[in-house]
Write a protein that binds this DNA or RNA. Structure first.
Lengths: 220, 220
DNA sequence: TAGATTGTTAATCGATTAACAATC
DNA sequence: TAGATTGTTAATCGATTAACAATC
């Protein structure tokens, strides 16, 4: 991939959706698709699809279209799904357990190698075959195993100290389910926030005002 | 609120974040704030804050700024958080249970009145005091109770039929954790999608390319 | 009143769409 | 070759930022 340096965020946030749709096409046994056909399925413009893809290289063939399998694996590569990185999850409460069980991290290039909780009585309990460790073992574990990413399913009050520690132990990427603003303290960290309650409030607005909430590319 | 009709999606998606920050200021006992002060805390421009708020009315006072408590309750009202609506949750698996326990729906104007699952052996089990019902009781329940929103925590394969049924029973708003594209079949529905794996893939990209993933207003 | 800060208009910037030449 | 569809440049649209008059 001849990746240019300043790909806009709008483009990047559309990539997972392309990846999903191409996966479905593949499941349906479709081997080639034109930007126009894909645009109809995804409800966006063919122009946008071609523009987006050309940020990363010319994956299509004039007069033919795109090879579905090839394009999908190119996008997987762009997204970094094809190289496995170790990750840990902090906070084995309801949300942490659900995420552990619900998400097949390996499909996205992440291997869950450790789960931590500050509640000592949870130590040793397994989730999806991975035993929970007490938070006081986090430092040694990180130094031994070098996880690159941490999922934060902890209360907000614990987030600041946890991130400070993890940054020190070499974890610089965070899938952040708390409302703690990591970038405010660590602008160099790689952060993806999941603000479930913000999403719920947006739905509340949409439903009250009966608007179509979003265009495809903004929320799909 | 003198709400205009075509508020852009970008603005709406910032409202929950304003609401959160104003809540924090209130907790800290801060009673007034200027757009400049707020812009520094939220890492966006004062101009944008004033533009955003003025979509809905003049909540500030020249020479003074904004009253924190008042502005917060105005935003609550705009978002519709101050009128309680009934809602149901479909799918009492890991994710459904976590969301039920983890999210205090009442804070966001929703009252969880029923939980449904297609697994008959789950019937009667309580989550947060609400007993699970079998899906075959969904129709009667909806006709009796008129919930306005449904959280979808079901497998994708079940989503299409479930939404079709719910639309018929008068449920037109969906907090959708599946990858089923509700708008494709029901453009008139109010939909908010939560695509956790898309978010994870975005983090993967960000971490691999070590970019600052987003500006505050896009992902915070 | 003078100083501060909003509300709002104008300027800029960026993202999306349209158009078309290149080419398979 | 003719037809189709990409890659890419130009035009449009919308969102953000800057500026400033209004006003508390």
């Amino acid at each position: 991939m001849q990746q240019k340096n300043n790909i806009s965020n709008s483009v990047i946030r559309r990539l997972p959706r392309y990846y999903r749709f191409l996966g479905e096409l593949l499941n349906q046994g479709i081997t080639k698709i034109s930007s126009r056909e894909l645009s109809e399925k995804m409800r966006l413009t063919a122009s946008q699809i071609r523009q987006d893809l050309n940020c990363f290289g010319g994956f299509g063939q004039q007069g033919y279209g795109y090879n579905v399998a090839e394009l999908r694996s190119e996008i997987a590569h762009i997204l970094g799904l094809d190289n496995m990185r170790k990750m840990i999850l902090i906070g084995a409460g309801n949300l942490g357990r659900a995420i552990t069980v619900h998400i097949d991290f390996k499909k996205y290039g992440y291997e869950l190698v450790g789960i931590f909780d500050s509640n000592i009585s949870m130590e040793g309990i397994e989730i999806s075959g991975i035993p929970i460790m007490h938070t006081n073992r986090m430092k040694d574990f990180c130094l031994d195993n070098s996880p690159k990413m941490a999922v934060l399913c902890i209360p907000r009050s614990a987030a600041k100290d946890t991130v400070a520690a993890l940054m020190e132990y070499g974890v610089h990427a965070f899938w952040n389910f708390t409302h703690y603003d990591i970038h405010f303290d660590y602008p160099e960290a790689d952060v993806e926030n999941v603000h479930l309650t913000d999403s719920l409030m947006t739905l509340s607005y949409t439903a009250e005002n009966h608007r179509q909430p979003v265009t495809a590319e903004e929320n799909e």
